[in-house]
Structure formats: structure tokens, C-alpha cells
């Protein structure tokens, strides 16, 4: 207990406290001033919007991918299953180069997403792909097929069965996967650094803004935006955990 608390304090709480202190160097007014600058607000808005879109795309596509991997049989399934983690395992800067080569100015397929919000979405969706897939996959494997058959026998077609019986079982996993994807997208730097373009008010994400502020020697601005990012991540994880917990509660009572 003591060791765990000490370790958490050194490794997590101390740096966070230092960050909070730095952000408050010019007082509360200074903090508010730092985060309400147009560039800061714009970058936070872009970051949160893009991350939310990415989380939503992941919920839908990640669930479909998990479904196909669990329920369908096709040649090369094991290979596809193994490649799911690749975007996550890849150094993010490599991901950025790959995406730049594919969708950049010299795109071999004629799609130019360089320095556009769409480019951000593609890059972040790419690196956060595994979260929902890996969260939903094991839960889906555990879903009792007889429960679906019971729904069929009661008159439910495939879609009704999915919506009313399967989906509720998957929801906690989808939510927690989406939460992780969102939190990861909020702070992502490497994968967007090349394809994002870093254009203030358009494609500059918070992590790029923070670095820029450090480079022009405004540590308070950087720290203040960091604290906001931290709060957003924390809040989103907290809310999603509460929600997932509520959905799951009745099933956990099962022995």
C-alpha cells in the first residue's frame, strides 16, 4: 500500500502537480488568459472534435472488424488478426510518413489529405484502430450463441437480435475501447506531425500547439493547455467508466 502510493506519487502525481503549478505561474487569471487565447481555443476545439470523430468511427468500424474476426471464417483471418495491432505498435512517426506517402502531395492514388482536418482524422483513426477491436473481440467471443437463437425463436430477425440482445452485451466494451481511443487521439503527436500540416486555427492539434508555445518560450501557455488536455482525458475516461460500469452492473452479479 505504502509502496504503491509512493510510486504513484513519484511517477504520476508529482509531474502532474508540477504541470499544474507551472500553468498557474501567473495566477488563475493568467491561466484563464492562456487557455482563452484564440489560438489555444482553436487548437482545443480541433483536437476534441477530431478525437470525438475518430472515437465514433472506431466504435462503428472497430466493432465491425471485431465481428468479422470472431464470427466469419475466411482465408488469411489469422494474418488479418495479427495486423490489427500493427498501427499501434508502429512508431507513430513512421505511421505519419506512411500516410504522407499515400495521401500527401505525391499521392499515388490521387487523394490529397495533407494539411486538412480529414488528414488528421485518417492519421488518428489509423493509430487508434486496435482499441475498440481488441476491447470488443473477447467479449464477442464470450457471447452465448444460444441467447441469439433464443431471440430468433421469439420472433426477432437478425437486426433486431443484434440491436436488442448482442449490442447491449458489447456496449461496455465498445465504450471503454472508444474512451481509450479518444484519450489516445487527444494527446497524439507523432502520427499527425507530418500529415497534419500544423496550420493554426485549421489543423494544429493541441500537442503541436504546446510544442510551438515551448519553442517560442511561453511555458505558461503550454502548461495551461496541457492541464486542459489532462482534464479532458481524465473526465472522458471517468464518465465512460461510470457509464460502462452502469451497463455492466447487472451482469457482474452473475456467478
Amino acid at each position: 500500500m505504502g509502496v504503491a502510493t509512493l510510486w504513484l506519487s513519484i511517477i504520476v502525481l508529482l509531474p502532474l502537480a508540477a504541470l499544474a503549478v507551472t500553468s498557474m505561474e501567473n495566477g488563475v487569471a493568467g491561466f484563464i488568459d492562456a487557455v482563452t487565447q484564440p489560438a489555444a481555443l482553436a487548437t482545443l476545439r480541433i483536437t476534441v472534435t477530431v478525437s470525438a470523430i475518430v472515437a465514433l468511427i472506431n466504435v462503428v468500424m472497430g466493432t465491425i472488424v471485431a465481428w468479422v474476426l470472431v464470427r466469419d471464417d475466411f482465408p488469411g483471418k489469422r494474418f488479418v488478426n495479427a495486423t490489427i495491432d500493427l498501427p499501434f505498435a508502429l512508431p507513430t512517426i513512421v505511421a505519419s510518413i506512411v500516410l504522407l506517402a499515400l495521401y500527401g502531395p505525391n499521392s499515388p492514388i490521387g487523394i490529397h489529405l495533407n494539411a486538412t482536418p480529414a488528414g488528421l482524422v485518417v492519421a488518428l483513426t489509423f493509430v487508434t484502430l486496435p482499441f475498440v477491436v481488441r476491447a470488443v473481440q473477447p467479449v464477442l467471443m464470450e457471447v452465448d450463441r444460444e441467447v441469439e437463437q433464443a431471440a430468433h425463436s421469439l420472433g426477432a430477425g437478425p437486426w433486431t437480435t443484434f440491436r436488442r440482445v448482442v449490442l447491449p452485451a458489447l456496449t461496455p466494451a465498445m465504450i471503454s475501447g472508444a474512451g481509450l481511443a479518444f484519450a489516445r487521439a487527444i494527446g497524439e503527436y507523432g502520427s499527425v506531425v507530418l500529415i497534419g500540416g500544423n496550420i493554426p486555427h485549421e489543423t494544429q492539434v493541441a500537442s503541436q500547439y504546446i510544442q510551438q508555445q515551448i519553442e517560442i518560450d511561453r511555458p505558461v501557455n503550454a502548461a495551461a493547455v496541457s492541464v486542459v488536455l489532462l482534464l479532458i482525458s481524465f473526465l472522458s475516461l471517468f464518465v465512460l467508466r461510470l457509464w460502462a460500469g452502469r451497463t455492466q452492473r447487472h451482469e457482474e452479479q452473475d456467478a
Partner: peptide, 12 residues
Amino acid sequence: GFVFQHYAAFKH
């Protein structure tokens, strides 16, 4: 109407 050995209850 079908009844399964392991109940197949809708747990949620």
C-alpha cells in the same frame, strides 16, 4: 417457443 438447457437468459 424454445427453451435451452443453459437458460439463454437476456442478462441485461
